[in-house]
């Protein structure tokens, strides 16, 4: 067990190194530095001024030296110009000159809240409908539920989002525009402020959960052991929920892991649709501005979260199915 976590942690560091190197390299390959210099320097810029900017940003040093400075900064902190940047130092934004760590810390709660709410709704409603469909398989209820899930899944955020805003905010004025409030300040406001984007994400992701839960449960119900359970005289509820649903959990955990990664790493379109300031927005702006430290920061955080989500899924497999062991 301990070996498993040590191994996975080492693997995570390795993956992060590779990802950071690739991101760093792509920035230079796409001649990002020239864009940055051009932008900072303005339209009528002399070569000397450009060189000055280049030097200020540290872009005049060799590639690997820059990479080394950046990576050691994450572990040990570093000084940038006259400012010091403490331990997990992701550098200063080229465009806003603010510490990247701080900006990510500011955006992260929004993204986290968006993801948590959406995931809870996805599990409750998506999986719940799947269980009901499996229990009523072959009936009209089953067909209606599966159809609803598929139709809902065919929506896109940029269609459903504005539609919900139009209906609930602009036409009926039942709600205010979505806004992030800290959960710790006011849980009620936190929930109502984000309910529209949550519903949006839930509706779009629901289909996968409903269909997967249904089919995995129907598969489990065809397993030999279910015949034993019936021969034991167990109640329908025990057979479906205690046993067949348990058998369906592993595949659900698989896609849940993928979705956690996607949602936590920033839901770009959702954040733009509902004007929320999360990681996704930071990522897009960083690319637009050729803001290397910002890009690196967002990519590394997103990658780390995705890797952790995968790790959680692997642990979940072992918890769900006693035959699975963690190596």
């Amino acid at each position: 067990m301990l070996r498993f976590f040590v191994r996975r942690f080492a693997g995570m560091i390795g993956i992060l190194l590779v990802i950071s190197l690739i991101t760093f390299y792509l920035f230079f390959a796409a001649s990002g530095p020239d864009d940055v210099v051009q932008m900072s320097c303005g339209r009528f810029c002399t070569e000397e001024a450009k060189a000055g900017v280049r030097h200020d940003l540290g872009l005049d040093k060799p590639f690997f030296e820059q990479y080394w400075v950046y990576m050691t900064g994450i572990v040990m902190g570093r000084d940038i110009g006259d400012r010091s940047c403490s331990a997990p130092c992701l550098g200063y934004s080229f465009s806003s000159r603010e510490p990247v760590t701080e900006r990510i810390q500011n955006g992260f709660p929004t993204t986290l809240s968006l993801a948590i709410g959406a995931i809870v709704l996805m599990i409750l409603i998506g999986v719940g409908l799947g269980v009901i469909a499996a229990m009523k398989r072959g009936t009209r209820t089953d067909k209606v539920l599966t159809t609803v899930a598929v139709v809902a899944g065919a929506f896109q955020i940029f269609i459903l989002g504005p539609l919900l805003l139009l209906i609930f905010v602009y036409e009926t004025e039942l709600m205010d525009l979505p806004k992030y409030y800290a959960f710790t300040d006011n849980p009620g406001k936190w929930a109502t402020g984000l309910i529209l984007p949550w519903i949006c994400l839930m509706v779009i992701h629901m289909a996968m959960y409903t269909r997967l839960t249904r089919s995995a449960m129907v598969d489990a119900l065809n397993d030999d052991y279910v015949r034993t359970l019936r021969a034991k005289g167990l109640s329908k509820r025990d057979i479906y929920i205690k046993h067949a649903f348990r058998g369906a959990l592993s595949p659900v955990a698989t896609i849940l892991g993928i979705d956690i990664g996607i949602l936590m790493a920033g839901t770009v379109i959702t954040e733009f649709t509902f004007s929320l300031n999360g990681i996704g927005r930071l990522a897009v702006l960083a690319v637009e501005d050729s803001d290397l430290p910002m890009m690196m920061g967002v990519v590394l955080v997103a990658a780390a979260i995705t890797i952790i989500a995968n790790l959680l899924v692997d642990v979940a497999y072992a918890v769900i199915d006693p035959r699975v062991r963690l190596y």
Binding site: D224, Y225, T228, H243, R246, G247, D321
Partner: peptide
Amino acid sequence: DALAALSPFY
């Protein structure tokens, strides 16, 4: 087949 006839999860 007792392996198939027993639930693997419990």
